[in-house]
């Protein structure tokens, strides 16, 4: 998989520090699980995290903390590495198997979605979006941000072509009309805050019915 579009370094650093909103967190996790370039950046930031631990002013632990931990540790012997979970009967990324995914819903002609349940209430919603080959999405803008990981197939817009493994970021400054590539359906993971605003007279007419 050759990845050409990556998340911003700031999003990756936020993920490495564990501070992203749950929807954004999932989008970056999915991208990074398949992108060695971004994983390298994550590990570098984790290295800075290690340095921060060494440089930080230590805060005294409560009296008896060590003894408490020793008592708890007596109830849990050292573990050997857990065998990797390699069930691969699905073509979704490994990470998504730990999330509960809802039923498929119709969104627009040629487009369906499945909501992903996030572990905590989040500013963003996450869902899997499946579009038929050659689908022209309506020209739209966003009121918030939209993080997209292409899992299968491809789409294109002014920003270029986005194939499996690529990451796309959209916000209110973007006004675009993606077209799904021919050949196979495009499956994306999307984390979105705010709403889509569909442009044009027709778009405004139907936008109450296009619910994402």
């Amino acid at each position: 998989m050759s990845v050409t579009h990556h998340p911003s370094p700031e999003l990756l650093a936020g993920f490495a520090a564990g501070t992203l909103d749950a929807g954004e967190h999932l989008a970056i996790a999915v991208h990074a699980s398949g992108c060695s370039t971004c994983r390298r950046l994550l590990r570098a930031v984790e290295g800075i995290g290690g340095a921060a631990l060494e440089a930080i002013k230590p805060a005294a632990m409560k009296a008896g903390a060590f003894e408490d931990v020793m008592a708890r540790l007596d109830r849990s012997p050292p573990q050997s590495p857990a065998p990797a979970d390699r069930c691969a009967d699905d073509d979704l990324p490994e990470i998504l198997r730990h999330y509960r995914i809802g039923r498929r819903r119709w969104v627009a002609p040629g487009v369906t979605m499945r909501p992903i349940e996030l572990p905590v209430a989040s500013r963003s919603r996450a869902f899997l979006l499946r579009s038929n080959p050659g689908t022209h999405m309506l020209e739209h803008t966003h009121t918030g941000t939209e993080l997209t990981c292409v899992l299968r197939g491809s789409f294109s817009h002014e920003g270029g072509r986005f194939g499996a493994g690529d990451f796309d970021f959209g916000d209110e400054t973007l006004d675009h009309q993606p077209t799904v590539g021919d050949g196979e359906p495009c499956l994306c993971l999307v984390a979105m805050t705010g709403d889509l605003r569909i442009n044009g007279f027709f778009g405004r007419l139907i936008s109450p019915f296009v619910r994402l």
């Binding site: 749950a22 995290g49 290690g50 340095a51 509960r100 349940e117 996030l118 572990p119 905590v120 209430a121």
Partner: peptide
């Protein structure tokens, strides 16, 4: 990985878990 970086990632993951426990939607817990 260096020892500190490894321990940092453990602490980070536990912090995320803790935040999730507080704000959990009840839907998923991993």
């Amino acid at each position: 990985a260096g020892a500190s970086a490894w321990i940092y990632t453990i602490a980070r993951n536990l912090r995320i878990d803790q935040v999730r426990r507080v704000a959990r939607t009840g839907a998923v817990d991993h």
